[in-house]
Amino acid sequence: MLKSTTPTMVEAGTKTKKKHRTFSLNAKDKYYALLFLGPSLLILSVFVFYPMLRTLYISMFLTNTLGKTTVFNGLGNYTDLLGSPEYIASLGSTLVYVFAVTILTVGIGLLLANLASKRLPGIGVFRTLYSVTMGVSVSVAAIFWLFIFNPSTGFFALLSNMVGLPVINWLTDPTMAMWAVIITTVWMNLGFTFLILLGAISSVPTTLYEAASIEGASERRQFFKITVPMISPTLFFVSTITLIEGFKSFGLIDLITKGGPTNSTNMLVYRIYKDAFYSGNYAQASSEAIILTVIIAFFTFLQFKFLEKRVNY
């Protein structure tokens, strides 16, 4: 997707400046480049590059009670972390969470978008309903779901009491707490995913479906053979965004489980926050941040490498 856009941009650039055969810049160009890139470079270096390098620096030291770097520890923080069963467990739960959230969000979003793309009377109501979570803030969503999960007065508890099933302790049982967070995140993500996918499905030319209908293809076949391939760039985009956002998930976890019970939802980003701002262990938190960066970069690379090839325009 990106590869195809870059050459055209370069072409457009050379067309406007026909004088320059090669891509070298003269003094005036350099001046302009600096003028236009300067502000963003300045802001990025203050708020992105410097913190990044500083994090890398801190991660190779030990920090004392006051949060100052004291003893050089080389890669010691990293080896300690990767050798700690708690951190590995945290990593595992993050992967479970991220993949469950991505698969469920994209799957359910696709299903809903496909349903809502049908031209039926009153479909606008459903389109609004399905995308309404876009307008809900994280804190409101968390409180809303906390009410639903409450073991004595919550909706789920009332439901299971009615049917005569045992009440699930959504937020105190380690396995269920993970599901509680996954359900809430998927619900939160669904609005955005739905809207993007609905837009993509609507832009698929109707002639393709007409032709397929004439050939006698079933609706299901049309969905998998026409809709999915045609919207695959959007699916790719949505899954990348959801995956990365999943790794960065913080607000809902803080408001719903605070990483508990017994660290079952203490995922990477939340762990960084807790180690730094609860325990004051900035060195360890910095190492965790670097590891997280590497993990996200790796998955983004994988997605571009493998998923992009299957993207059908």
């Binding site: 073991p151 004595s152 302790n169 937020l171 105190t172 605070k258 508990g260 019970p261 017994t262």
Partner: peptide, 14 residues
């Protein structure tokens, strides 16, 4: 056993 964490405290009180 009401578990651990803030909600456990609230649940045991309830």
């Amino acid at each position: 056993n009401y578990g651990s964490g803030a909600s456990a405290g609230a649940n045991q009180t309830a």
